[in-house]
Computed example of a mutant assay.
Amino acid sequence: MPSFEIVTHVMAPPERVFDISLDVDVHTASMAGSSEKAVGGATTGGLKLGDTVTWQARHFGVRWRMTSTISAYDRPGCFVDEQVSGPFKHWYHAHFFRHHGHGGTVMSDVIEFAAPLGPLGRVAETLVLRHYMPELIRVRNQYVKQVAEAPFTAG
């Protein structure tokens, strides 16, 4: 089963980065390139333990739907989203947030996934998904970083 980790350094406190990472509206904006939007479950605002979202997006010219749930939640250290139904045989995405010097955060995304369709799915994993999926997460994380590092007022 393919897995990968993406590490992003953000100059904002972990609590802020954690909350932004769970915001449906931020996620939607970060995935504008694939026209991703929430069409079921929690469709706006911040997610919490047990929430589900059905996402609709267009990848490779095909419209996809994936319902995921927040299966673990420990603010501000980590949360996990897992596919309940959708295009993958398996999707597990753990998000970790830890302090690093001068008020910043190291954000780590650890993802495990498996394509459906047995041997054909393994070919898709090897030829396409093992490159496409990390890039998709990098794009999302750069948007999260941009939002988190924007000036804000505490309160």
Rank of each mutant, 00 (worst) to 15 (best):
F97D: 07
H95V: 10
E135P: 01
T43E: 09
Q146V: 15
G155S: 09
P116K: 12
H93R: 05
G33K: 00
G86T: 08
P14I: 14
P76Q: 11
T54W: 09
S21L: 07
H27F: 13
E82L: 09
R140W: 10
W64L: 12
S108D: 08
H131T: 13
G33C: 07
V106H: 02
G86R: 04
P151I: 15
L22T: 11
V139H: 00
W64A: 04
R65K: 12
F60M: 13
W55F: 10
V106S: 05
L49V: 13
E15D: 15
C78Y: 06
P116N: 09
H59R: 06
A57W: 12
P87V: 09
S71A: 08
Y132M: 13
G103I: 12
M11T: 14
I6S: 01
I111N: 01
I20Q: 02
A29T: 11
G50I: 10
D25W: 07
S35Q: 10
Y132T: 13
I70C: 09
F97C: 08
E135M: 13
M107Q: 06
V17F: 08
H99T: 15
P116S: 11
R65V: 12
A94Q: 02
T153V: 15
R138E: 06
V26M: 03
G61H: 02
H102W: 07
A12G: 10
T69F: 02
A57F: 14
Q56N: 10
A32I: 14
Y73I: 06
F88W: 11
D19H: 12
G103P: 00
F60P: 01
Q142K: 05
F96Y: 07
A115I: 10
T54Q: 09
M31A: 14
F60I: 14
G50F: 03
V84F: 05
G50Q: 03
V26R: 00
T67I: 11
E5M: 12
A32N: 01
I6N: 01
I111V: 15
F79G: 00
H99L: 14
D19Y: 10
P76L: 13
G45L: 05
N141I: 13
E15Q: 14
V7F: 07
L22S: 08
G46D: 12
L49C: 08
P2T: 09
Q83E: 12
F97R: 00
E112M: 06
P76G: 13
P76H: 11
G101N: 05
V139S: 01
D74Y: 05
V53D: 01
E15T: 15
T126R: 09
Y143D: 07
A154Q: 08
T52G: 04
E125C: 06
A124N: 03
F79N: 00
V110S: 04
V147M: 04
T105H: 02
H131S: 09
S85K: 05
F60A: 11
S35W: 05
R65L: 13
G50M: 03
A124V: 14
D23H: 08
G86Q: 03
Y73L: 06
H95Q: 07
R63K: 12
R140A: 09
G118W: 08
L117H: 02
D25A: 11
T153E: 10
P76T: 10
M66E: 11
G104I: 14
I6P: 00
V17E: 05
H100M: 08
